[in-house]
Design a protein around this nucleic acid. Structure first.
Length: 841
DNA sequence: TAGTATTTAATTTTT
DNA sequence: TTAAATACTA
């Protein structure tokens, strides 16, 4: 029996008032819920109207609870489905929620409003943004568009890019918006030169957005809030429509989202929020845990339900995660427990470097798969997207199927952005950022000079750039018809440039016409055809693949084929702007999932690997020194570990190559928090790491002295007391030269890194080919007249002892690369300056 | 103007 | 390592 049947059999309630909020629950429903839910979950689901705070620990079944509560509200409390508003963190979560509710109450579920804050606000703004001076065909700018716009504004504001990184300015503006500061308010607060620069940029930025009828991600929320505040009738409408508001992941809500929720629930106060302060990981995005911690302050009459039984993880995993949690400096008291078994110990692996780490993961995955584990049950997580590369390589090499979340996202690919820019411009002719993106893509001979002239002309006329194009077309048309018409200021272009501009303007106007009349798929095809985009891609190295991506986009477009021309385009664009990476995760596909710890929020897997458990990586170096940020890293670790159901692997490397240079890394402090009796220590071959000895020694290694750089050569692992050799890093070329004793200009030079003055002519030093590491193609370099090491030489290294030089070469970087066989240790390739060796004989 | 060569800079996490 | 900005050449 499902909930629908249960309530149906309870009978007789149909005539009772629409919302009998505190009415007793019908016995049938009650019995059904008791059977489906534990007592706390049932309390949460059946809680009476009014503010409700559900503190849901990891794996405590909160999605289930929200779905049941929505179903309960509809079926038992007779709240119309379209009077329920549910906010989730991702679109995927919204989709899943909808499915679950549909299973409980049937097709009515589709009338529930479910989505992310951004998606919901975008939808609402389409209807009401005209109240605050925008047009409903507004473009949504992503971070990339924001940067493009900012860079454009730099010149106008007389600021140069070297001084203040556009990235930093973008982040600062975003923060200001999250605090609801207008440019004027920000300007008043500005103290240092950076802030003054931002103040002026922020003002122009916002003006420019409005001028081109565009909004950024923050605006979606901020402007919706403004609508609420400036158009009370709209707010009242929403308040009336949504009798019940539910918000998931409330610990990651920011000020604007908080205020939106508060406004919506202000009348009836039927607000259900769900969250876990220990899982707050978006502080950097303006989220503030205080909103969940102080919920009861905000809503004194609120009811609190704690979900403390974990159904997901083994006792071992839960204990370990709680040990991480216990290290937080501030948290709400919780007691998460589980009836699940102890399970297997957590595996901690010490790998040599990221390739070794990836190897370990791949090998382990293979082993598990041979034991019957499905690939789709396995996830590999990391702190930064850049860490995925080595993992991918290893998985490809072993031919293991995987899907990756994030990285270069589909919608951020150049070809996709190009096509989207066309579509955006068709939808919103004022969109200058899109216009400038594609005005010369494919090449139309409209270069920088022409573009500058166009902008100057627009400025002189005092109209936005996109309209000057329209004007130019009209002038041209008038000219052809003999009814000559003059612009107040004559267009400054040469004939060639003018013709190209007019042709482009015609093209766009034709496409815009098609946008109004044709279906979306026809429009899409026409756009590709008329622009010659395919031919353009043919010249590209990766043209084939790019074209496939365009075709993939076309298949997405077909989903909107049935809609009205304008509306379909709008819906498609909106969706394209707001999809998150996790949204595209395919659960059905049997493949390993690679994703960042942040994207892993809300997901669960039987087997979880967390890689890069090193100081500086996780916790990230940018967080070190700031207790609040360190707490957030720790919560992130907690989130990651609690994704695991049965098996958890924590992997760290001795050496990791960051931006091309290897660095030694100490094991993450988080590893030291994990109770030793829950661990199984291995090397990258999955073998028990004897050298780590008893737990105590290992813990000491982790928390204190660190491990040896490249210590994998012999007995892998941190030998207690071996100490950590000083961190040796390549600095400037000067430093290299100093350290290696090679003088540039005379002894050797290589072309790429040296200053032009020092670059020799080809005649003086003939290029030779030298062997490089691995099987990579030999790098063409200039032969050193005198390298430090020569084949056959005996050398001594601080970590590896004595050895014999096999070969030596100067790399493109100007580093001397030396291959040495160390006595009893095998062959190693070393960069001279990274690991200087003493020449013995 | 377009294409190529070279230099420089940047690297957290995302709706 | 690589993307993006810049300089240079055809």
């Amino acid at each position: 029996m499902d909930l629908a049947q249960a309530t149906a059999t309870s009978g007789g309630d149909v005539d009772t008032p629409v919302r009998a909020a505190h009415a007793p629950i019908s016995p049938a429903t009650d019995a059904y819920l008791s059977q489906q839910l534990n007592p706390a979950q049932k309390d949460a689901v059946t809680a009476p109207d009014g503010p409700l705070l559900i503190l849901a620990g990891a794996g405590s079944g909160k999605t289930r609870v929200i779905a049941y509560r929505i179903a309960f509200l509809v079926m038992e409390r007779k709240v119309p489905a379209d009077a329920i508003l549910g906010v989730t963190f991702t679109n995927k979560a919204a989709g899943e929620m909808k499915e679950r509710v549909e299973k409980l109450i049937g097709p009515d579920a589709r009338r529930v409003t479910l989505g992310t804050f951004h998606a919901i606000c975008a939808r609402w703004l389409r209807r009401y943004i005209d109240r605050i001076g925008y047009d409903s065909s507004f473009s949504i700018f992503d971070a990339d568009d924001q940067l493009t716009l900012l860079k454009r504004l730099y010149a106008d504001a007389g600021i140069n890019q070297k001084q203040f990184a556009p990235q930093a300015v973008r982040a600062e503006i975003s923060k200001a918006k999250e605090r609801l500061e207008t440019p004027a308010q920000y300007s008043r607060r500005a103290e240092d030169p950076f802030q003054s620069a931002v103040a002026s940029l922020y003002r122009r930025y916002q003006e420019s957005l409005q001028e081109q009828n565009a909004v950024d991600f923050d605006d979606l929320l901020v402007l919706m809030l403004r609508v609420f505040e400036e158009a009370p009738d709209v707010l009242r409408r929403f308040q009336r429509q949504y009798q019940q508001v539910l918000v998931d992941e409330y610990q990651d809500v920011n000020k604007v989202q908080y205020l939106l929720v508060k406004h919506l629930a202000a009348g009836h106060r039927n607000l259900t929020i769900v969250g876990d302060d220990s899982q707050a990981i978006y502080g950097w995005r303006g989220a503030d845990v205080r909103y969940i911690l102080e919920f009861e302050h905000d809503f004194p009459e609120s009811r609190v339900v704690r979900l403390e039984q974990n159904y997901r993880s083994t006792k071992t995993i839960l204990k370990a995660a709680q040990a991480i949690e216990a290290g937080l400096s501030a948290r709400r008291d919780k007691r998460l427990w589980t009836e699940n078994g102890e399970g297997v110990p957590i595996t901690v692996c010490q790998a040599a470097d990221e390739r070794d780490e990836a190897m370990f993961v791949a090998r382990e995955v293979e082993k598990l798969h041979n034991e019957g584990q499905r690939y789709r049950d396995i996830a590999v997580m990391y702190r930064m997207n850049s860490q995925s590369r080595a993992l991918e390589e290893a998985l490809v090499r072993r031919r293991l199927p995987y899907q990756i979340v994030g990285g270069t996202r589909f919608y951020e690919r150049r070809e996709i952005k190009d096509v989207l820019a066309y579509l955006r411009l068709i939808n919103n002719p004022a969109d200058a950022v899109s216009l400038e993106r594609i005005i010369n893509v494919p090449n139309r001979g409209i270069g920088d000079t022409t573009l500058d002239q166009l902008r100057d002309w627009a400025a002189a006329l005092g109209i936005p750039v996109p309209y000057t194009l329209k004007l130019l077309r009209e002038l041209d048309q008038a000219h052809e018809q003999g009814t000559d018409r003059q612009a107040s200021i004559a267009p400054p272009f040469g004939d060639r440039a003018k013709n190209q501009l007019v042709a482009f303007a015609r093209l766009m106007s034709d496409l815009q016409e098609a946008g109004r009349t044709s279906g979306l798929v026809e429009l899409f095809d026409m756009l590709l055809l008329r622009t010659g985009y395919r031919e353009y891609l043919a010249n590209d190295k990766a043209g084939e693949e790019r074209w496939e991506n365009v075709m993939e986009l076309r298949s997405v477009v077909t989903d909107y084929a049935g809609m009205e021309p304008g509306a379909g385009l709008r819906a498609f664009l909106e969706n394209a702007s707001l999809v998150a990476d996790v949204d595209s995760l395919k659960a059905e596909q049997d493949s390993i999932t690679l994703l960042t710890l942040h994207s892993a929020k809300g997901l669960e897997y039987p087997v979880v690997f967390i890689t890069g458990m090193e100081e500086g990586i996780f916790p990230h170096s940018r967080s070190q020194g700031d207790p609040e940020q360190m707490d957030e890293e720790r919560r992130l670790c907690y989130v990651g570990m609690t994704r695991a159901m049965q098996r958890l692997y924590l992997v760290h490397c001795d050496v990791r190559t960051v931006y091309g240079t290897p660095r030694s890394g100490e094991p993450s402090q988080f590893l030291a928090s994990v109770p030793m009796d829950r661990l199984h220590l291995v090397n990258s071959y999955g073998m028990q790491a004897h050298s780590l000895g008893g737990g105590q020694a290992a813990v000491r290694t982790w928390s204190g002295t660190g491990t040896t750089i490249g210590g994998q050569a012999g007995g892998r692992g941190g030998r207690e007391g071996s100490g950590r050799p000083e961190r040796k890093q390549f600095g400037s070329l000067e430093a290299i030269i100093q350290r290696t004793g090679i003088r540039h200009g005379s002894d050797f030079v290589q072309t790429a890194s040296l200053t032009p003055q020092a670059r020799p002519t080809a005649a003086t030093v003939p290029p030779v080919r030298v062997p490089t590491r691995g099987n990579a193609a030999p790098a063409p370099v200039v032969a050193p007249a005198k390298a430090k090491y020569a084949a056959g030489q005996r050398v001594r290294h601080t970590s590896f002892g004595q050895g014999t030089v096999l070969a030596s070469a100067i790399t493109r970087r100007g580093e001397e690369e030396v291959r040495v066989r160390f006595d009893g240790v095998g062959e190693k390739t070393l960069l001279g300056a990274l690991a200087p060796m003493e020449i013995v004989a």
